[in-house]
Design a protein around this nucleic acid. Structure first.
Lengths: 137, 137
DNA sequence: CTTAGAACGTTGCACATGCATCTACATAGG
DNA sequence: CCTATGTAGATGCATGTGCAACGTTCTAAG
């Protein structure tokens, strides 16, 4: 249930971001992680973990983002093996433009895909899995 | 938040099903939909909708499932354009074997990825989006 | 210093997927 | 009957992804 709802939402978001901002969802995710990191930069490895993408997947994705000027690679002074992925100004702008679309999409599609009722049931399921709240019972 | 948690769970589930039962998550989903349908069969088109896969994607996936003997195609008597995808006995067995893995995985990874606390917060977020329950307030 | 092993990121390959297109069949209008 | 339009699935192509393997660099042990 959660599975399918999420798949629907993901695909809708993907389409909207792509259409409106020429950004894949994975790209949006990468830009977000970079934006919220100190100096807008992250080691490729760390980024791969946060973005839930394999190393190779990230390599290619950053290739594309770099080609589009949204991200740059910088050598890591401490470790010659390492590379930083750095959010460019253009990248920050694109991200800022896309964020409202993203947030609106989450809200709209979450409600649209499930309906308030199912949403409540999902909430109940999650709450049940989590166990009773600590300050109660 | 939900996004990334779900991605993590999906990938973990995918890996476990693949390793333990040689079933991709998409395949598991297809088998499930067929199993819960009357006569264990569904038109390709209907199946594609329920499984959240494009038509072409489903064509290929059913190709693979058919190759592995888990599903068969049957002509549709009413409409010569149409095809049924039918769950075979082998398919039903594989599905039955995989289901415990799936359910255990959902529970384990949902809790593992988020922790009871975050889970409660997610539940609260969903509940908030859904609005107040009808029988209250 | 030298060597062995680990870690970081990239690349070759295989594969699943979507979009656009195609064919076959169905349905409506003449 | 014949034609036009729509629908069900399949296929060509491009793309994004992961796994395994590779080269480079770091770290530890001698």
């Amino acid at each position: 249930m959660l599975q399918r709802a999420q798949a629907r939402i993901t695909r809708a978001l993907e389409a909207e971001l792509l259409l409106g901002h020429d950004l894949a969802l994975a790209s949006y995710d990468v830009l977000t992680r970079l934006a919220e990191s100190p100096d807008r930069r992250l080691r490729m490895n760390d980024l791969a973990d946060r973005v839930l993408l394999s190393r190779s997947g990230l390599t290619r994705l950053v290739d594309r983002l770099q080609r589009d000027g949204l991200v740059e690679r910088e050598a890591c002074p401490d470790d010659a093996r390492g590379l930083f992925a750095v959010l460019t100004d253009d990248g920050a702008v694109r991200l800022a433009e896309a964020t409202p679309t993203y947030l609106r999409g989450i809200r709209a599609h979450l409600l649209g895909a499930l309906g308030a009722d199912e949403l409540r049931r999902c909430a109940a399921v999650l709450a049940g899995l989590a166990g009773p709240p600590p300050g109660e019972g």
